[in-house]
């Protein structure tokens, strides 16, 4: 079956449909979809300085490339790349090498911050004395640095490569764990309240699947040997991901349905939780938090021995 829009050989069948597209038509479709998300949810404003959270993986690499490309003619919008080096040997060091070369080639300023410098030890070392789930402590440190460092770089928005798969997993995780309040922070643009201590997050790849993003990365020649984090296999998210992928294979459209249903109730969630929690400033680092001391500082003092800020 030829491409739906021309006569070329197809390279992809779009998810949840029988539409086949060739390379050029798929690239156009993909970029149009990102542009549409940016337009519909007002993800980019005049004079924005968008800090792009990059890992060297396919999602954030595609995101960085597209944000740079789509804002090429807008002299008022600045794009900067930010990467966090957790200190995972054989994984992050390789992806950051790829990212460094990518940024050089595409002339994007790249800033890398490490757990070792910011918290005293790389993750591989931290996990030797931490008995909890690796993703818990790593996620807290990573989110903390992304927020803090984006502000230090004078960014006013943080773009992340979250896609339809990531978001549908988060929605289901929050349901399963009775954490519905956390879902109020999801969506293509995050933030329940306007607070200068929190940088707003935008997700231009929100409506694209991992499979579409990998196809785009492959066709554009951005493919490195993208690997999975070695600590990811047993995570709760990984189990939800596998469950949803099995459902999707059996009932195509499942993930799209989760997202579209969620977006219908998101305004209600945002309204419900907008005043619920007082945002304090951490007594140690001054970053926003719900308690006296933020979770990152708690972990840093409890888990990272001999830590000094």
């Amino acid at each position: 079956m030829a491409c739906k829009k021309c006569v070329e050989n197809p390279v992809i069948q779009l998810p949840n449909s029988n539409v086949n597209l060739c390379k050029n038509c798929f690239i156009k479709y993909f970029e149009k979809k990102v542009n549409k998300t940016i337009g519909e949810y007002d993800l980019i404003d005049k004079k924005d300085h968008i800090v792009v959270a990059c890992s060297g993986g396919k999602d954030s690499t595609v995101l960085l490339y597209l944000l740079k490309k789509l804002t090429e003619k807008r002299k008022d919008v600045k794009i900067t790349a930010l990467a966090i080096d957790e200190g995972i040997k054989g994984y992050r060091d390789k992806s950051l090498d790829f990212l460094t070369n990518f940024c050089k080639e595409h002339k994007v300023e790249l800033n890398i911050f490490s757990y070792e410098k910011e918290f005293g030890k790389p993750l591989d070392e931290i996990l030797k004395s931490y008995n909890g789930v690796p993703c818990s402590i790593c996620g807290v440190f990573r989110r903390y640095l992304l927020n803090k460092k984006s502000k230090e770089l004078n960014g006013n928005k943080l773009a992340t490569g979250h896609n339809l798969d990531d978001e549908s997993q988060s929605i289901i995780m929050n349901y399963f764990r009775k954490n519905i309040k956390l879902s109020a922070r999801l969506g293509p643009i995050t933030g329940i309240i306007a607070d200068k201590r929190f940088i707003r997050r935008i997700k231009p790849l929100y409506f694209l699947t991992e499979k579409e993003i990998t196809s785009y990365a492959f066709l554009k020649g951005f493919m490195d040997k993208f690997t999975e984090c070695p600590h990811d296999a047993d995570s709760y998210r990984a189990q939800i991901r596998d469950m949803l992928n099995n459902f999707e294979a059996k009932y195509p459209g499942t993930k799209h349905s989760i997202i579209t249903s969620f977006l219908e109730i998101l305004p209600v969630l945002k309204e419900k939780y907008k005043d619920e929690q007082e945002i304090k400033s951490c007594k140690i680092c001054d970053e926003p938090c719900s308690q006296e001391i933020c979770k990152a500082c708690q972990y840093a003092e409890e888990v990272v021995k001999n830590f000094t800020r």
């Binding site: 396919k58 999602d59 699947t209 492959f218 493919m223 993208f226 999975e228 984090c229 990811d232 991901r241």
Partner: peptide
């Protein structure tokens, strides 16, 4: 067969 799953 190239995996589409990658850790963030």
């Amino acid at each position: 067969l190239i995996s589409v799953i990658s850790g963030g």
